[in-house]
Design a protein around this nucleic acid. Structure first.
Lengths: 96, 96
DNA sequence: TAAAGATATTAGAATATGATAATATAGTAA
DNA sequence: TTACTATATTATCATATTCTAATATCTTTA
């Protein structure tokens, strides 16, 4: 719990601190998706989706593979992210 | 997982997206602390600590009780927060 | 190689966030 | 009430974040 410093932990949470990025993560929990898919599912313009994906790539939340002419993004640690969201949602529900 | 909307989830993570706030939460995991204690432990000026506490109060992460002339802050859901941090740190460690 | 499709990057402006300094408030004790 | 201690609030400025529009890059296929 103490081995990582506060800045790194804060930066990680910051990568999840935007509604569009949460929307992307929730979709990726269903499985790998290309940028065009996400553009429709999350309903944001393509450059915006790309920018948010780039932020999450930089913090190690997502990665991608090339498939044909498309880039398909996926969660690097879907199980751990599911755990994280599960704790987060329990916390939110207790605060009503 | 789908009952809460993306904005609420993002706002919650945003409340944890600053190093000083993480420092405060880590200290509060040890137990209840007054503002003066946190000021020394986290090494930030008092008004700044108060501002960050106010942000976390607003998102339901902390609450406080009056004790004498001091306000003592505590985590509302220490166990769930510990789980959340535990998942978060596992994610960070896998990304090295 | 040229064209088309898919995604990324950049620049700009608008908004949000955060630190500092100054001041205000609330509680306690004399 | 006054003085003191602890905490909160406000205003301001600097910086960071985000969206949009325009353009660039990369990949595939003709």
């Amino acid at each position: 719990m103490e081995t990582l410093n506060c800045r790194k932990i804060a930066d990680f949470f910051r990568a999840l601190s935007h509604p569009t990025r949460i929307g992307i993560v929730l979709r990726l929990l269903e499985g790998k998706k290309c940028v065009g898919n996400l553009e429709e599912l999350v309903k944001a313009p393509q450059p915006n989706i790309s920018q948010h994906l780039s932020i999450m790539k930089a913090s190690g939340i997502v990665d991608w593979i090339q498939q044909g002419k498309m880039k398909c993004y996926f969660l690097k640690e879907p199980k751990l992210l599911k755990d994280l969201f599960s704790s987060g949602e329990k916390l939110l529900k207790r605060n009503k």
